[in-house]
């Protein structure tokens, strides 16, 4: 009898477990739960995302947002298609790669109006004023990533043959750059650029950054993406999410909210000192919204088209994807 009761209890538990796994019981709270996959670990490049979360901007739109940090092994676009995420952050090259392979991804907003990717160099070692000055230099690039395409475009436009430059494979540490094996090294100007720049300057080094955008090469960086299905089936959800997110970014880069923005990032990034975070926020602001520039989240169609053209030119995609059609219209 005891065994029978035990079996019945076990069966009941199994049935409940099965029911819970197959039936979508919806969010436990009244808010709509959505999942948002970031491109990288939470740092200053995600300040608007964490600000919106910390300040309850998502909640005020009736959303409970699970912010998921990204990383090299994470791909927001794949997660959108597999249903593991509702929204995500991806760079333009990821979006264009995905479109070339038939992924139904759409771009909702462009977070970075200027690409933070630049090349750091020691002023006492090299003098780089134009891309033509790369001739004879050793330049760090991450083969397969967008900095490789940007560098190849710069060289082609400057008429520098690839044999005239030594491309050095970038790896996880900066030793080749510090030791002089590479003359230039790619960094994100608002994160590593600040941190390493401060350290080198404290050590008495004179450093500078080479900005590809200043020489006409515009390659779009982080943007907010979702699936075409969600956009067409739940437009109101997409609008609510986007409203809260862009409000978060708008407020986060407002100098009046500096301390709140720093506190939001510091919740996750405890290893970076407050001074460095402050300088990183300062460096992030003009990338998100320049004075007199377009609104936060503005999608620069011309820059997207240039990005696609560069990727085609260097064989990153084998067909045109007409990326303009996949960008959200204002």
């Amino acid at each position: 009898m005891g065994i029978l009761t035990g079996r019945k209890v076990l069966m009941a538990l199994l049935c409940i477990g099965l029911w819970l796994t197959v039936v979508d019981i919806g969010p436990l709270s009244a808010d709509q739960a959505v999942s948002y996959r970031l491109k990288w670990l939470i740092n200053m490049s995600t300040v608007g995302d964490v600000y919106a979360e910390a300040q309850g901007l998502f909640a005020s739109e009736g959303l409970t947002v699970a912010l998921k940090p990204g990383g090299p092994e994470r791909d927001a676009i794949r997660e959108l298609e597999l249903g593991h995420a509702d929204f995500g952050v991806a760079s333009a090259d990821q979006v264009i790669h995905a479109l070339a392979k038939g992924s139904p991804v759409v771009v909702l907003a462009q977070l970075f109006q200027a690409n933070p990717l630049q090349w750091i160099y020691f002023k006492d070692r090299v003098q780089i004023d134009t891309p033509a000055d790369f001739k004879g230099k050793t330049v760090g690039v991450t083969f397969g990533k967008n900095d490789e395409i940007i560098m190849r475009t710069l060289l082609a436009r400057a008429g520098v043959p690839e044999s005239g430059v030594r491309l050095y494979s970038v790896r996880l540490d900066y030793t080749p750059f510090f030791s002089g094996r590479a003359d230039l090294w790619p960094v994100y100007i608002n994160s590593q650029g600040v941190e390493i720049g401060q350290r080198l300057e404290a050590a008495g080094e004179r450093i500078a950054f080479f900005n590809p955008e200043a020489h006409g090469v515009r390659f779009v960086a982080n943007s907010v993406v979702t699936s075409e299905r969600l956009k067409s089936e739940r437009p109101e959800l997409v609008e609510r999410f986007l409203r809260a997110l862009l409000a978060g970014w708008q407020s986060a880069v407002d100098p009046a909210n500096t301390e709140t923005a720093l506190a939001a990032v510091r919740q996750y990034d405890r290893d970076t000192t407050l001074e460095v975070l402050r300088a990183q926020l300062e460096a992030t602001r003009p990338l998100i919204q320049s004075p007199g520039g377009p609104a936060v989240g503005y999608i620069d169609i011309a820059a997207w088209e240039q990005t696609e053209a560069m990727m085609r030119q260097y064989g990153q995609i084998d067909r045109a994807v007409d990326v303009g059609r996949r960008l959200r219209k204002p």
Binding site: P72, E73, D75, I77, R78, Q94, H97, A98, T142, F143, G144, K145, S169, R171, L172, D173, Q316
Partner: peptide, 17 residues
């Protein structure tokens, strides 16, 4: 971290998704 071999090629393929 290396710059040769099949592991390095896999890393590049991963960057290119």
């Amino acid at each position: 971290a290396a710059s040769a071999g099949i592991g390095y090629s896999i890393r590049i393929a991963l960057y290119q998704s």
